[in-house]
């Protein structure tokens, strides 16, 4: 049995849940494959913290898939157990740092969204360099871009930050899913051409 875990974090309204759903749909093609993962939806639309887990399971055989000791999976990702962390907000990357290990890939959006605690002067928003230092202490596979800027420049709004980040996943990680599968999923969805373009922007970063 092989497992590939992706944690996606960020804020309500950034399309975290949608990104997770796109990735999960990629697991429908094979009979020996399973996917699940819980979502934290509470903060959607209200500036709150949102996360989605994508846990791909690849069974070696039908008998393994039927083995009750193997075919049940927690909807959560355990500490250090994520292969990829996608974060659409800098400090949310830090908050999710416990999911990654020294071999994980971290992809994050450098565009900050200042929380209320910083506004009130109760805490300081860390500098990008400090954030990077903390991440590089764990893994050297850190990729960061201003996804907001890329989305606004290309689509006039921040709507595509999630799909651009998915493109980066397929460019920079060894995700065991073919990018054509994702492209086919995007093609079937709404705003197909925009999403395909966004995915390709990410792929070429």
């Amino acid at each position: 049995m092989q497992q590939f875990n992706i944690a996606i974090t960020g804020l309500g309204g950034q399309g975290i849940i949608t990104a997770g759903t796109i990735l999960k749909n990629a697991a429908l093609n094979s009979d020996l494959q399973d996917v699940s993962g819980s979502e934290r939806r509470g903060g959607a639309q209200r500036e709150g913290y949102v996360e989605a887990f994508v846990k791909y399971i690849f069974y070696d055989s039908v008998s393994e898939m039927q083995n009750q000791r193997k075919n049940m999976h927690s909807p959560m990702i355990a500490s250090g157990d994520a292969d990829v962390l996608i974060s659409l907000e800098p400090i949310e990357t830090l908050r999710a740092i416990s999911y990654v290990n020294k071999n994980s890939v971290i992809i994050f959006n450098t565009n900050p969204h200042v929380p209320i605690s910083v506004r009130m002067g109760k805490s300081k928003y860390p500098e990008l360099d400090d954030i990077l230092n903390s991440l590089y202490n764990i893994t050297d596979k850190v990729f960061y871009y201003d996804f907001n800027k890329l989305s606004i420049e290309n689509f006039g709004s921040i709507i595509s930050v999630n799909v651009i980040s998915l493109g980066v996943v397929f460019a920079k990680t060894n995700i065991p899913i073919s990018k054509n599968v994702i492209e086919n999923i995007l093609l079937k969805g709404s705003k197909a051409q925009d999403n395909l373009r966004a995915f390709n922007i990410g792929l070429n970063l």
Partner: peptide, 20 residues
């Protein structure tokens, strides 16, 4: 696993709280 738990503990006070 333990390393990952410690990684967060080490920096958690540097992360500004975010509430809805």
């Amino acid at each position: 696993f333990d390393t990952a738990v410690k990684n967060l503990e080490m920096i958690s006070d540097k992360i500004p709280q975010r509430m809805g």
